[in-house]
Simulated scan of single mutants.
Amino acid sequence: MVGGSDRVRIEPWSEGDLDLLRRINAPEMKRHLGGPETEEQVLARHERYVRFGGGGQGCMFRVVALPDGVPVGSVGYWERNWHDQTVYEMGWSILPAYQGRGLATAALLAVVDAARVRRTHRYAHAYPSVDNAASNAVCRKAGFELLGETEFEFPKGRLMRSNDWRLDLTATDRP
């Protein structure tokens, strides 16, 4: 166990999480992210997630709902160059059957704690689509500050209109 709360636990992504990633790749889960990926892209993403934790530039986790211990999504952080500064980008996905229960916010707070412990970068950012009300609410509830709208490339080659949310990882207060 890496981190969590009484609602979720986050665990490093592992070989056994491929089926979870396939479930996350559903059209309803990817509508704000350019649509589902091909099987080849999912397999490549899974391999990146498995290897990622050892690289020191971030980590991907499966989100486990408590008390049942059911894997319900993913959350992670990774390095990104943003406005000439290296920051952590954070992202998450919670399966539809488990949405609306505060699990995404709890998972995001757990991954913030994991990134904060590293003491590598001052800021973490999240870039949900301006149309993704649920993900923008997660950022707000997790204590991120809305800096405004921006053009953001995701997936590669596709610009989307996103909100730029920022959290100071050196701050000690927590929502």
Rank of each mutant, 00 (worst) to 15 (best):
F61V: 06
L43S: 13
L103T: 03
C59S: 11
E40Q: 13
C59N: 13
Y98N: 05
P71C: 10
V64S: 09
P71F: 08
V111I: 08
H121G: 07
H46F: 05
A65C: 08
P96F: 08
Y77I: 00
S74E: 14
G91S: 07
M60P: 09
Y77K: 05
R122I: 01
I94M: 01
V111P: 00
E47L: 12
Y123C: 07
A107L: 04
G53D: 07
W82L: 14
G56H: 08
P96S: 09
H83Y: 06
V50F: 00
G53K: 11
S93R: 10
R45L: 13
G69T: 12
M60N: 14
A115P: 03
P67D: 11
V87K: 06
R80F: 02
H46R: 11
R119C: 07
T105Y: 02
V42P: 09
V117E: 13
A115K: 10
V87P: 02
R118W: 05
A65S: 14
G91T: 03
Y49M: 14
A114R: 14
Q41N: 05
D68G: 11
R51H: 09
R101M: 12
R45Y: 11
Q85G: 01
T120L: 13
L108P: 01
G76A: 08
V117R: 15
L108R: 01
R119L: 05
V42W: 03
V72Y: 02
F52Y: 15
G56V: 11
V72W: 04
S74V: 09
Q57D: 11
G56N: 08
L109E: 04
Y123F: 15
L103K: 06
D84Y: 06
